[in-house]
């Protein structure tokens, strides 16, 4: 096989990889499971929007208006500006819905194929295990972006229908135009998608460890919940900055004026670190593994 690879021109390889990626993408996004996950994610902003609309329809404020009124970040501003529904929805889905969906897709990536007995057929194609793994990871990351954008777009449409749009008051109290606000919303969606890099790599690694798709998904989602709980225990503050979920809500710093970059950078660095560690661990495991199914 290595001889065949050596003979093939790089361009042919690239075409192969693209073809593999395309077929992976279409397989993933045509699954009912994926569509159901995306449907749930579409529903969350609609639910929040309608709930806020009903609660404020009699002129009252959200959650009594106190400082501890509860609810996800930015929820108090939704009635002034529908654009804030995007931020609220992302803040509401980022701790659980989004990573859970990513965990399902990532956990299923390799183990699901092994479970269905299709992994060895994939490996028959002269793509190589490393490239197959990269393709799987790229597919998972594409899902991260798509899932985040689904939430954002659904929130934007719901917000535009139910609430007025206009100039955006940043959380620092300054004003920015609507176009600038939209641009920030887009950046926030990208940062949220990038926040999922870590759990995607972790899920992929778990996926290479087992031949059962369900076990891989359950482990990934279980890890997610465990880390989220550990992140709440004050005695563990020394290790908390290294949890992949620790800086997730830093995306809100993009709504400050000027933008506060410290935590955002920390988040992205941490996600890159997780991708490097668990990506290479997945590679080590997958390329050395006996494929029997």
């Amino acid at each position: 096989m290595s001889q065949a690879e050596a003979l093939a021109a790089p361009r042919v390889k690239a075409v192969w990889t693209l073809g593999l990626l395309r077929s992976e993408l279409s397989t993933t996004f045509r699954r009912w499971r994926t569509l159901a996950l995306l449907a749930v994610l579409t529903g969350v902003p609609i639910l929040i929007g309608v709930a806020v609309k009903i609660e404020t329809s009699d002129g009252s404020t959200i959650g009594g208006g106190g400082p501890d009124g509860g609810g996800p970040a930015f929820i108090a501003q939704i009635t002034n500006n529908g654009l804030f529904l995007v931020f609220t929805s992302l803040a509401a889905t980022l701790p659980f819905f989004l990573p859970m969906a990513v965990g399902v897709i990532a956990g299923d990536a390799v183990a699901g194929e092994a479970n269905a007995g299709t992994l060895r057929y994939l490996l028959v194609a002269p793509a190589g295990r490393t490239r197959l793994l990269l393709t799987k990871y790229a597919t998972t990351m594409t899902f991260c972006v798509v899932a985040t954008l689904v939430v954002a777009v659904s929130a934007l449409v719901t917000g535009a229908v139910l609430f007025p749009l206009g100039d955006v008051v940043t959380i620092s109290g300054t004003r920015i135009g609507f176009a600038e606000g939209l641009w920030r919303a887009f950046l926030i969606a990208l940062v949220v998608a990038a926040s999922l890099i870590g759990i995607a790599a972790l899920g992929l690694f778990v996926s290479t460890l087992t031949n059962s798709g369900i076990a891989a998904m359950a482990t990934t989602v279980g890890l997610l919940i465990t880390v989220q709980i550990l992140d709440q225990i004050p005695q563990l503050h020394a290790v908390q900055p290294y949890f992949f979920s620790h800086h997730w809500l830093s995306f809100a710093d993009l709504m400050r004026e000027p933008v506060y970059w410290d935590d955002l950078t920390k988040n992205l660095q941490l996600q890159a670190l997780y991708a490097a560690v668990f990506g290479s661990a997945a590679w080590a495991r997958f390329t050395a593994k006996d494929i029997t199914a």
Partner: peptide, 27 residues
């Protein structure tokens, strides 16, 4: 400004006005 999680509390003095704005409760 006091930076909170996903919220900010700002006190702004500009000429004759002193404003305090709490973005968490939008007050």
């Amino acid at each position: 400004s006091v930076l909170d999680d996903a919220a900010e509390y700002s006190v702004i003095h500009n000429g004759a006005d002193v404003w305090a704005y709490d973005s968490a409760s939008n007050e």
